[in-house]
């Protein structure tokens, strides 16, 4: 295990040290004294597990391709921007625009997330990103979603309280959003359909939540007891006729 002290380091210096360690084949990296450094783990490849102590800055794990980053605090904005593979686990809350254009890998958040989470998320065949949020989400959850899976659990929410904000799934044209509880159509984008889960959905949900619950040390069975709703794109090409006049 390698330990790096990030206190006072600019992100460029910090990332250089992380990349250097990963290139040498270091499997476990612990970074202490993180506060506000942007782009940690950006573009990083390989399979290292990086644990951060402190509050990392924006664009954590942008373009990341393989490693696992564990954050023992809250995350800020733009985490997993265009991430390709790997995993980010956040023990606290996280900010806005998480998983922007994310194309693979996992983002696990224990607490609440902000606005525009999963915007433009995409997936093709086996390449499918997953975002699991333990708490609640702000407006525009899954906006313009094109692929992958988003799961919203609302673990500390009161029964009946909305788990997501307004404009849920607006512009969605691929992928699936699973919400643990009821979803009010009036808060959803026009392109979204709401349904119960079939066997295939349940299998996908269980698979995603098994890993999430392991990371967060949560009881899977209990979480699965409450019924979920699935949000899906009502049309694959909602604007296919927009210019076909």
């Amino acid at each position: 295990m390698l330990e790096i002290n990030a206190a006072g380091l600019h992100y460029r210096a910090l990332n250089e040290r992380i990349r250097e360690a990963a290139a040498k084949g270091e499997k476990e990296i612990r970074v202490k004294g993180v506060n506000g450094q942007y782009y940690i783990g950006a573009g990083l490849r390989g399979g290292a597990v990086i644990t951060l102590e402190g509050t990392p800055g924006n664009d954590l794990a942008a373009f990341m391709d393989g490693p696992t980053i564990i954050i023992k605090a809250n995350g800020q904005d733009n985490i997993c921007n265009t991430m390709n593979a790997g995993k980010v686990v956040i023990d606290g809350n996280a900010g806005d625009v998480l998983g922007y254009g994310m194309r693979g890998g996992r983002l696990h958040v224990r607490g609440d997330v902000g606005y525009r989470v999963g915007i433009h998320m995409k997936g093709v065949k086996k390449q499918s990103p997953t975002i699991v949020v333990g708490g609640t989400a702000g407006d525009f959850f899954g906006e313009y979603m094109a692929g992958g899976v988003m799961i919203l659990l609302g673990l500390n929410s009161k029964d009946g309280a909305p788990l997501a904000g307004d404009y849920l799934g607006t512009g969605m044209h691929g992928g699936a959003i699973y919400v643990r509880g009821e979803v009010d159509k009036k808060y959803c984008g026009a392109e979204v359909g709401i349904t119960g889960l079939d066997d295939e959905d349940n299998a996908a949900l269980k698979e995603a939540l098994t890993e999430y619950c392991k990371d967060m040390n949560l009881p899977l069975d209990e979480i699965m007891k409450k019924p979920f709703k699935k949000l899906y794109p009502a049309s694959l090409r909602p604007y296919g006729n927009l210019y076909a006049y």
Partner: peptide, 8 residues
Amino acid sequence: SEESAIRT
């Protein structure tokens, strides 16, 4: 704008 600016 950022939590880290408060935490510092």
